[in-house]
Amino acid sequence: MAEHIGIVGAGYVGLTSAACFARLGHRVTCVDSAESKVDELRRGVVSIAEPGLAELVAQGLGDGTLTFTTAQAELHGADLVFLCLPTPPAEDGRPDLGVLERVVPQLGRLLRPGCVVVTKSTVPVGTAARLPGLLGRTDLPVAANPEFLREGHAVDDFLHPDRVVLGTDPPGSAAASRVARLYEPAGAPVVLTDSASAELAKYASNAFLAVKLSYVNVLAELCERSGADVREVARTMGLDARIGPEFLAPGPGWGGSCLPKDTSALLHAADSAGVDFGILRDAVRVNARQRARVVR
């Protein structure tokens, strides 16, 4: 059954989600506060360089399943609303939820009862639990549905995900089922869990990849000094099903828009909880050293 889906934020995650949900046959209203961006998207101009994204936007605009607006009021009739808002790191590493905290109360004043409010952007543990208070209402179910999109593969990752993670309190609620139905065409495993576990799973996944990359970079340095070939060592490791071949290529260090931000956020969460996450802190330190080493 086609749903009316609202997307708040037309950035990397929001635009990909909007275009892909429209591709799956839903009616999507994407809201963004930047008038110039909305004007461009209405004309089919996509500034994000993602394979297939511009084509999906054009298709959605052409068949009328995808619209862009600056008016939040157009979300009044939505069945589900996905929050795809920026959460940049603050100076201490914690995610800055300022935009989300400004926008969510506004949504609380206009959404109809029963609309499911879903966090899609990467947010700290406990954010979904805070949403009813920010919305100022208890008749809007909330869910955490973190994205796992790789740069350069976002459309494919959305339409063919490894897994779909849905966190609600309690797990497997009616709201979770409604969100899960949106992804049925993907045929991916659906993880129904509590909201805190869903939120932490996103950070944990990216932080683990960062640790794996730092590990192989230190291993490469050891290979250089020992006369071994890190490529052969990594190939041998990768044939072990418990390890796998992914993220075992040495390089100049990890970066991008997700790993640095998410490792910092997880370290901040650990510090706030009184947990010594030394292995992750070491991975960050190794990464900084690797970059300096490559420059030298």
Rank of each mutant, 00 (worst) to 15 (best):
P95A: 09
P260L: 03
P252E: 12
G187R: 15
P95T: 04
V191E: 13
A270H: 05
S226L: 15
G172A: 12
E246V: 01
P51D: 05
G98W: 04
H153S: 00
C115S: 10
A2K: 12
G133S: 13
V190M: 08
F68S: 08
A220P: 05
S226A: 15
S17P: 02
W254T: 00
G60Y: 10
V294M: 11
L192N: 12
Y203K: 04
G98I: 09
V164Q: 06
V230H: 06
D240F: 06
K212S: 00
P185L: 13
A174T: 14
L140V: 11
D39K: 09
A186V: 03
V165A: 02
V230W: 04
S195Y: 09
R285L: 04
R43I: 11
P252A: 15
G167I: 02
W254C: 01
N217I: 09
V284C: 06
V155T: 01
A292R: 14
R27H: 14
S205T: 10
L131F: 08
T236F: 06
S197V: 07
R163Q: 08
V284S: 03
E232K: 12
H160Y: 00
G238D: 09
T70K: 05
A2Y: 00
R109I: 04
R231G: 15
L259M: 04
V216R: 09
V118F: 01
L83W: 03
I243W: 03
I279C: 05
P141Q: 14
L213F: 06
P132L: 12
V104R: 13
T69M: 10
V31D: 09
L166E: 01
P95V: 02
E101N: 08
G227Y: 12
E224W: 06
G93D: 08
M1E: 07
E184R: 15
D262V: 02
A58W: 04
R181Y: 10
E151T: 00
L111V: 12
E199K: 04
P260A: 06
I7W: 01
L219S: 05
V28S: 07
S272I: 02
V103D: 07
D157A: 04
P113C: 11
E221V: 02
R43G: 15
T16Q: 04
D162P: 01
R231S: 12
G251C: 03
G11P: 11
E40C: 12
G93Y: 03
T70F: 10
L134G: 03
Y183I: 12
R130I: 03
S33R: 15
G136Y: 09
T119V: 13
S177M: 13
T87Q: 02
A265T: 00
R242E: 02
E184F: 13
A18N: 06
D156I: 00
D32P: 06
V8T: 04
K120M: 02
L140Q: 09
E35H: 12
D139G: 10
L159D: 00
R225N: 07
R293S: 14
P132M: 12
A175V: 08
G253D: 01
F68P: 03
D276C: 05
A18F: 06
A58T: 04
P250M: 08
